[in-house]
């Protein structure tokens, strides 16, 4: 099962390597990891997407909690939550492709944020499968490069992760 784990961690040098090192040392799967400071600059928030059986996910959360710098861990996928990922795609957009590309970007609520004679950079946010769907929808041979941030997640309603 796919799980989205949110972590509040002390914003110390090396904090990221403690988390990523834990995943590699214990052979835990890691699909994506995002991290940035929060409104409280002494804390960073990470979102990790991992897959594993319930037992493995339980170990992951326990091992994360065991890290001295980790303040809080929640498995967002245990309840209603929102996940979003940002993708930037540079595509070839010349001739007849130019209009078509804009049309598909519009359908996916993408924005064209950089333009040259023959290319667009399209910005897209959504959950992972929406971004995948966009890449499926356009002609593969027109993709010049893609960059994705990995998933960030937050709980719905009044599920709040805070110290």
């Amino acid at each position: 099962m796919r799980h989205i784990i949110s972590i509040l961690i002390e914003n110390e040098a090396g904090a990221l390597s403690r988390v990523s090192g834990l995943f590699s040392a214990r052979a835990f799967n890691i699909e994506s990891l995002t991290v940035a400071p929060t409104e409280d600059a002494s804390l960073s928030r990470m979102t990790i997407v991992s897959t594993g059986s319930d037992d493995v996910i339980e170990q992951i959360t326990k091992q994360l909690n065991k890290l001295i710098d980790v303040v809080k861990v929640v498995d967002l996928s245990e309840a209603a939550h929102i996940e979003r990922e940002l993708m930037l795609v540079r595509v070839r957009a010349a001739g007849k492709d130019r209009e078509e590309m804009k049309r598909i970007a519009d359908i996916f609520r993408g924005r064209i944020i950089d333009v040259t004679d023959s290319t667009y950079v399209i910005e897209l946010t959504g959950n992972g499968s929406k971004l995948d769907a966009f890449l499926e929808a356009i002609d593969r041979s027109l993709i010049l490069e893609t960059v994705r941030t990995g998933v960030s997640g937050i709980g719905r309603g009044d599920r709040i992760l805070k110290v």
């Binding site: 040098a13 403690r18 090192g21």
Partner: peptide
């Protein structure tokens, strides 16, 4: 040192 020992300590610090 902090990198080499990280997986075999409970915790480590570099004092700056």
């Amino acid at each position: 040192t902090v990198g080499i020992t990280r997986p075999c300590v409970k915790h480590n610090f570099l004092v700056k």
